[in-house]
Write a protein that binds this DNA or RNA. Structure first.
Lengths: 223, 223
DNA sequence: GTCTATATACAGATAGAC
DNA sequence: GTCTATCTGTATATAGAC
């Protein structure tokens, strides 16, 4: 549950923001950060008051300000803290030991599961909502998550193309289209709060359909 | 808490240009609605104060409350007012008079252009941000926009499949995947405020790539 | 309808005791 | 570090004059 090196560097650069290692922080610090997470992600930045955070965390406002210089600081710390490692299972996966279809299927299923989780949806919503005012935060999120996952798939597709297993002209574009299919309409509906549950059956059906379509489109000439 | 006024009529979307049916509302009403649009879409619901709307509209707060019962009402009216008809050019297009590739290409380009426009991005951001608190608003938006466009493409793909021009097992899934590819990573980056300009070249390249991949995947058996 | 002025509540942030 | 109490500004919404 430790932060990664990359994130540590980023956080060290942030103005006075403490690092994300839970264990070396007092209990009240963690309570504040968790309460901030629950409220900011549900109510947004402007919709969340420091009074509400203090109430939910079971501390006084002064305690919050002992740790965080401002509401903005608390928000940024909360976003950094909430960065989970679910993405890591995607870009660190050893895809080459699997067959092409199995590899793509694995990426599709895991990416979809991550993307449609309530936590991811809330985080993405609040980051998008604040993107105009905190572009650096959005950029950090993108690079730490979607970008790394996509880069990993691009690399994988490059190798697959070199081995002649698939006919892929531009692996980067192919990777973008693949993830686009996976995100797809279900993710949009989830972001809009229209589809309540992940509905495992529909997730699987869409993921499989995306993989099938990708494979058909990039079948090597011989087959 | 709903106002009895009717602002459900569809308005022309061009940013500064008032639509014809705006004329049946007094000038100050329109000023309020436009100011609300500029502020809510940029600052979000909670981040926008009625004082700020009044100031930008050049009216007093009391005037706003003469037209809208509450901040919530003003927000909803503003979203309904902003509903533009750019989507209509998509689901009303006569696709059958074109070849398959031309039809898909047209849908791809127009949908991408609509989706990456600043207005659409801001609207989508604020609707997503408020989705938890105003699910009905999100649902209306989805049905009026993405859902209708996708339904139109599903119908078109059904006809194309019946004519044997493409091999499509499930037109609804195919349509979802197609729009997923079109939205894709560029849209995510735009929503995060990372890609400043639509970058016509990249839009075209991605749209063309999506169409090409779709056609390759659904080539009829004979070819 | 439209304004000025205001009621009332709550926001972010701080002072000072312990 | 943690609290209670408070400062100062601003929020939504309304009263009442015209």
């Amino acid at each position: 549950m430790k932060a990664e090196r990359v994130e540590d560097e980023v956080q060290a650069g942030a103005d006075g923001a403490p690092a994300a290692d839970d264990a070396c922080h007092p209990a009240k610090y963690r309570q504040v950060l968790q309460a901030a997470g629950e409220l900011f992600l549900d109510q947004g930045f402007a919709g969340t008051s420091m009074d509400a955070v203090a109430r939910r965390a079971g501390v006084s406002k002064a305690t919050i300000y002992a740790y965080f210089a401002s509401k903005e600081d608390l928000f940024e710390a909360m976003v950094s803290h909430g960065k989970d490692e679910r993405f890591a299972t995607l870009y660190q996966a050893d895809l080459d030991s699997l067959g092409v279809e199995a590899a793509l299927s694995r990426v599709a299923h895991e990416f979809m599961a991550v993307l449609t989780s309530p936590q991811s949806l809330k985080t993405l919503r609040v980051i998008m909502a604040e993107a105009g005012r905190r572009p650096d935060l959005a950029a950090r999120f993108y690079r730490a998550g979607p970008d790394r996952v996509m880069a990993a798939l691009t690399d994988y597709l490059t190798r697959v193309a070199e081995r002649g297993e698939l006919a892929i002209e531009d692996p980067r574009i192919a990777s973008q289209l693949f993830f686009g299919m996976i995100r797809g309409d279900l993710h949009l509906r989830r972001m809009l709060g229209l589809a309540d549950q992940p509905d495992a059956a529909e997730v699987a059906r869409l993921a499989d359909a995306a993989v099938a379509m990708f494979l058909r489109a990039h079948r090597p000439a011989g087959q």
